[in-house]
């Protein structure tokens, strides 16, 4: 089943003196349960593509359908709600809320979804256990290592039961051990829970783990490789 359908999207930034064509006729589909890496050199349009897939930015032309819903024409206010219930985000800089504990950070998304307190506490603890950081539940992000913080970020992204998770350079700030641990956890979530992951990355270790690699160059899909 297709989770994301991208049809011929272009993105032109006109704020600069010379218009910048960040994306130029990009099309692809992502199926449920995929573990996909979007790769390419700096400036190829990875982040722009991820922003558009995440409903954070609008394409100049083309369509993006998520679970058969066209998000390109959605109003900003509807997109916020759509993101909350359909998309999980993992950022390069973790972006946890510094004043909340690990558990509260994971709970927070469900609080926004108005999930009952008992249910959200239980799901948060379950996710932290799956991430192997349940013992850090009451610690603040500043007391955790980078790898641990990124695992909390993944737990937070999964907490809302999204259709897919968008991860923008999730391992860029991690050492090799933390990267390996994080990738293992995400691979397990993908294999066992059928969670769909889409990464933008430069990291060869992530690329090696991906089962599909979409390579962008100059705003176009250069290659789309599916691995078994």
């Amino acid at each position: 089943m297709s989770v994301i359908k991208v049809e011929n999207i272009t993105k032109v930034y006109t704020e600069t003196a010379v218009p910048v064509h960040a994306l130029n006729g990009v099309s692809f589909e992502i199926q449920e349960g995929e573990f996909t890496a979007i790769v390419g050199p700096s400036g190829c349009g990875k982040t722009t593509l991820l922003n558009i897939l995440g409903g954070l930015d609008h394409p100049t032309s083309g369509r993006v359908e998520i679970s058969n819903i066209d998000i390109t024409e959605m109003k900003d206010s509807d997109l916020i709600n759509f993101r909350l219930n359909n998309i999980g985000f993992v950022f390069q800089a973790y972006n946890l809320i510094p004043v909340l504990t690990t558990l509260e950070n994971v709970e927070f998304i469900m609080l926004l979804q108005k999930v009952d307190k008992k249910k959200r506490r239980k799901r948060s603890m379950d996710l932290l256990e799956q991430m192997g950081i349940a013992e850090k539940a009451n610690q603040r992000p500043s007391e955790l290592s980078g790898g641990q913080q990124q695992r909390v970020a993944v737990a937070r992204a999964l907490a809302s039961k999204p259709n897919f998770i968008l991860a923008d350079e999730p391992t860029a700030n991690l050492d090799s051990v933390s990267t390996s641990n994080l990738l293992d956890i995400m691979a397990v979530m993908n294999r066992e829970e059928k969670e769909t992951f889409i990464f933008s990355t430069h990291d060869q270790r992530v690329i090696d783990k991906a089962r599909r690699v979409i390579t962008l160059e100059d705003g176009r899909v250069k290659s789309d490789e599916i691995r078994e």
């Binding site: 995440g54 954070l56 206010s77 916020i80 709600n81 993101r83 909350l84 219930n85 998309i87 985000f89 950022f91 972006n95 809320i97 998304i109 926004l112 979804q113 937070r156 809302s160």
Partner: peptide, 13 residues
């Protein structure tokens, strides 16, 4: 930045 992140993950204005 934090405001941007909050809004990205689905927090209403």
């Amino acid at each position: 930045y934090e405001f941007g992140v909050m809004m990205s993950v689905g927090m209403k204005r």
